[in-house]
Computed example of a mutant assay.
Amino acid sequence: MKKYNYLLLILISLFSSKVFAQQTDSTYQVRGFIIAAPRPNGLADFIKFINEELAPRKVNTLVLRVDFDYQYKSHPELRDSVALSKSDVKKIVEACKKNNITIIPQINLLGHQSWASKTTKLLEKYPEFDETPWVKMPAAADYKWPNADGLYCKSYCPLHPGVHKIVFDIVDEVMEVFEAKAFHAGMDEVFYLGDDKCPRCGGRDKAVLFANEVQTIRDHLAEQGRELWIWGDRLIDGRATGIGMWAASYNNTYRAIDMIPRDVVICDWQYDQDNQTAVYFALKGFRVVTCTWNRPQVALNQVEDLYRARALSSRELKYRFYGIAETIWSPPAQFLTGYYANTPGSPVSDNTPWNTFRVMFDKMGKLDQAAAAK
């Protein structure tokens, strides 16, 4: 059965590539939008946005950061206090089906198991999975970065024998309820990994640890004919590129890029400047989705880069430039408030996510029209 499912994933990938190759050079696979899942009381507004804003812009991929904001049946202890029900999720699924939008749910795996002074549900309920249990969470008023513990976000230990059973239970459940064929595992900004004090992974090569965790998650999904997406920052050498420790790696995980399967899709976020790292990932053999946030001019540059790269690259390389997505890092309700309070036509210097969203998709529409007119 496992071999059959691996073969199925390969066939799906080959078929998708063939269909994609038949499209014109002005198009690309992913026109994406990445945001946290809405709260139940914001569901109607979120669906309105899908219908009235995403669909007209031909957005075809919605990555939803679900994490613990779903009423899991497999592990109800991991539900946040306010979480989407199955019927809530189905309303989002139906809206996306109607508009030909593919949903990719995200649960942060490995890193981002805490935020500021709050431990998220996995380590709250299963503290034995903590990579650095001796690092204590500060009081809310006391959290500062940088700090003596190097605490940004906690990680789970990828070598703990019990972690994947729990994690894969909720991954499988969220994939089923969203009727999804691809899963986003996060895996960005992992600062705690292979800690010297960890009894399981202390002293091990951090690149190997990271690559093995990618492989483990990818293999679990592949058994069911599903695809893995991750953020790309840990696969970039932060020192050699000068990109730094946030949008790239200082703890040597970047060497994992040569150890992970090439069917993993890389979401390459470079928000503050156009570092053209999508070229790096494509040359390494990965499909790459360029991700923007709140810098309209950077987003415009990245849209032009995408079109240029596809126009100039070889046939094999061209289709690895998989698309582009706008990412939102505020709660959906906050983003929608800003979006609807600010009318179109803001200057490019207006560095907000809603202005970036408008500017980016407007530019893509104009380039599409120009290509169609040729």
Rank of each mutant, 00 (worst) to 15 (best):
K363S: 08
F321G: 09
T292C: 14
G225Q: 12
A240I: 05
Y271I: 08
G285Q: 06
V298F: 10
A222L: 09
M360I: 05
F357D: 02
P331N: 07
I243N: 01
I243P: 02
Q334P: 01
A222T: 07
M259V: 01
T343K: 08
E316F: 08
L317N: 06
Y322A: 10
P344D: 07
K284P: 00
P353S: 14
L312P: 03
W231S: 00
G242F: 14
R358T: 09
A341H: 06
S249Q: 02
G242A: 13
V348P: 15
P261F: 00
E316M: 09
Y340L: 00
L312I: 09
R358V: 12
Q224D: 14
L336K: 00
L317K: 11
W329R: 03
I257G: 01
S314V: 00
R239G: 13
P331A: 03
P347L: 12
Q334T: 04
T290F: 08
C291F: 12
W269V: 05
Q276M: 15
I257S: 03
G244Q: 11
W231R: 03
Q270D: 09
A333F: 05
R287I: 06
W354A: 04
P353L: 07
R295P: 02
R218Q: 10
P296R: 10
C267D: 10
D268P: 04
L336C: 04
A311T: 13
K363L: 12
S249D: 15
L300W: 03
Y280A: 00
L235Q: 00
L317R: 12
T352M: 15
R315D: 11
